[in-house]
Amino acid sequence: MSGDAAGRAASIDSSTVRRVAGLANLVLTDEEVSYYQRHLSRILDYVGELASIPRQDVGEFDSTTLAFALKPQERLDQTQPSLDPEVALVNAAKTSGTTFQVPRIID
């Protein structure tokens, strides 16, 4: 815990930081865990102000609702040429034939 947050419970503890990092497939050193715990706690404390918003008054909001309505757009069922497989694979670190190679997956 950083000094300025002493006396207050952290919004996020170190095991949560590790769990969240795991969900995002990040590995953190111990120093990084404490760095992010400190920072994320500060941010989460700050955004706690939103708790006072009466959600039922404004209703559910989906992320595409903006000051104006976006008209949904659809495309016709028409095909276009796919990428040349060499081009599709050119940026990959490891390939085999025309596939992308990864360490063996255990099902």
């Binding site: 969240v20 918003i53 989906d62």
Partner: peptide
Amino acid sequence: MLGTFVLSAGYYDAYYAKATA
């Protein structure tokens, strides 16, 4: 990590939903 945390099970309503409100 912040984004992952606020979408993770049990926190969506407290954070993301409030933010959209």
